[in-house]
Every structure is written in C-alpha cells, then in structure tokens.
Amino acid sequence: MSSTANDQQTPDEQTARPVKGHVVIENVYKSFGDVRVLEGVSLDIKPGEVAAILGPSGSGKSTLLRTVNHLENIDAGRITIDGKMVGYEQRGDKLYELHEKEILRRRTNVGMVFQQFNLFPHLRVLGNVMEAQVSALGRSKTEARAKARDLLKRVGLEDKELAFPRQLSGGQQQRVAIARTLALDPAVVLFDEPTSALDPELVGEVLDVIRDLASQGVTMLVVTHEMGFARDVADTVIFMSDGLVVEQGPPREVFSSPKHERTRAFLGSVLEPAYNL
C-alpha cells in the first residue's frame, strides 16, 4: 500500500472547525465472564479527529468501539460524547441507566459501520438509507428520500437505489452502509474493520469514501488493519494490546519510531512481510 498523501484536502474544507463529536474514554474496564477484555482504557478524541485503532486480534479494539455507542455495557469507567454518557446519566454520585428511548436518541449521534456491513437484506438500498431517518429521527419520507439520494450520490451509488443489498458487491454494500450511517448526521462515526470482509480490489473504493469523510469534520474511530490507510488519513494512531492502550500519537511518530516493544513487534509483523505489497 503506497502513501498517497493527504493532498486531496482543500484548505476551505479544513476551515470549518468542528465543535461536535468530542469522545472521552476514561478508565474503562470490561470483561466477558472471566475473560478481561478492557483493562483501564483512557482516550481523548477531539472533535473532527480521525483516530485509527491498531493492534493484534484479541486486544480489545472492537469491544472498545462497541462500548462507545453502548452496544456493550462497561463494568467500570465512563465514556462521554460531548460531555454526555450514551447509556447513563450522572446525578450526584450515582449513575442512572437511561431509558431505551433516550439511549436510542443519543445513539443516532454515534454512527457505526460494521465489518459484515449488516445491511437490511429485505429492504432496497434506498429503504436501507431511509429506515432510521424515519423511525429514529422522525423525518418525513420525502425528506429522508432526498437525503438518502444525496448520500448515495456522494458514495457513488446513485444508480443502485432500487437494488437489494445482495445484488451488490461487498464494496458497494459497505458504501451503502456508510451512507446509511451518515444519513443520521452523526457527530462521531465508528468503523469496525470496515474493509476486512472485502476482496482486496474492493478495499480502495471504501477507503476513498472514508478518506473523503475524514475531510468533512466528522470524528472517526477506525479499527483497521490497513496500515497505509492509518498512516495517510489518521490524525492519531492508537495501538492497543491486551486490553490496554500501549501507545498513541501522530502516525508519523508511531510508525517510524514506535516507543513500545509490543508496538514494534506488531508493526514489524504487519509492515515488513516477506513479500512486498
């Protein structure tokens, strides 16, 4: 994967300073039964920042991502987005679990793109992008349809709105999934290995869409195995191992002079394979 530089970002796109989408993760612990997955993770992702989360499998990357929009409960610690917790409300020294309705409302602020796309197979592409706009945000169908068409155009699929997901290629499906998430105008978008289920030649089209998004001021947490993408697009690279954040910093620093032994070992295994990409 070669380094196509950041030069696609035009200056005027960067002028608008995003104010929404500040993700703060404080001392988060999580176990599944006896298996401890997160062992005190703390992160501060600024509004509009693109953070790539790297690490060996089983290091807790995906779990961390899923706790951010409350798909997983956490055992200890707290996660806030713009000062608000997704699943709880703090009053005094007690945490009150929020009602389903309020959790859902807060979730629309945090989009999620899955490794397996998880499009709704029984709905057409247009229906997939409209559904949550209508049922979660209460937009009118006309409004939702216009928004959906707009986004499908942006991801280059305006001619596919009447197709069913299974009639599309993996790359096209993932782009629909991204459009579906963006339709809710989230301040934060979580990407859970968005290109891992794709054929190699389809990875590029999805990364292009994500790269385009990175220049729009949406805060993004991207769990990925695409080192080239992390190096080119991310503002911060976060390296996780055994449920802990081992190292974080600008991609240039982490990739060229990793401080931690485990980061070095991991980068060595993924960046210098016997064959040259």
Binding site: N69, L71, E100, K101, L104, R105, R107, T108, V110, G111, M112, F114, Q116, N118, L119, F120, E131, A132, S135, A136, L137, R180, T181, L184
Partner: peptide, 21 residues
Amino acid sequence: QGQQEAAASLGIPRWRRSTHI
C-alpha cells in the same frame, strides 16, 4: 445477530426493530 445490532446502533426503536427488521 448483526441485524439487531445494526438496527440498534441506528437508533431504531425496539418494537420497530422486531416488526420491520
């Protein structure tokens, strides 16, 4: 299970998740 998760992460209400997804 991913269907439930996708619907939940999009903020689709529980009853509608059951009946429409």
